[in-house]
């Protein structure tokens, strides 16, 4: 289990959804959480702050979650950042695209704290965090 002080970025264009994810993370003990409202502002934040984990929604204006993911993997400073993709539907093609683009995990909305914890733990385990 990584440090609960892990610096996380929650990306979603819906402020309520950001709050929901943030509250779930808080339930799990992660309180060092910041928010961004789309891929563009997320990328800016990631490039200027030392974030250690990203939870991003898929459908967003300006830059979608999958584009954000691709940009993260292209950036030499960010390429190893763990990214958990949040999708609205458990569609095969979405999950295939997320995996191919280098996502570390995916989670289908809506989700409980338990599901989020499982997904996070899987990623932590795989990355040896």
């Amino acid at each position: 289990m990584p440090d609960k002080n892990l610096k996380m970025l929650v990306v979603d264009d819906f402020s309520t959804m950001r709050r929901i994810v943030r509250n779930l993370l808080k339930e799990l003990g992660f309180t060092n959480v910041e928010e961004a409202e789309d891929g563009v502002s997320a990328l800016n934040k990631l490039q200027s702050g030392r974030f250690e984990f990203v939870v991003t929604d898929w459908n967003m204006p300006n830059m979608s979650g999958i584009e954000l993911l691709k940009n993260i993997r292209k950036d030499p400073n960010l390429k190893d950042l763990p990214v958990l993709m949040v999708t609205a539907e458990a569609k095969r093609e979405n999950i295939v695209e997320a995996a191919q683009s280098g996502a570390n995990g995916y989670i289908v909305k809506p989700f409980t704290a338990t599901t989020l914890e499982e997904k996070l733990n899987r990623i932590f385990e795989k990355l040896g965090m």
Binding site: G102, F111, T112, T115
Partner: peptide, 28 residues
């Protein structure tokens, strides 16, 4: 390899990784 274009997604039914069968795994 992540981010590599993988043309055919080979569907290998992987061994059920860890016990992840919570009642609510909502696929909406």
């Amino acid at each position: 390899s992540p981010a590599a274009p993988a043309p055919a997604a080979a569907e290998t039914p992987a061994p059920a990784a860890s016990a992840t069968s919570t009642a609510s795994s909502p696929s909406m």
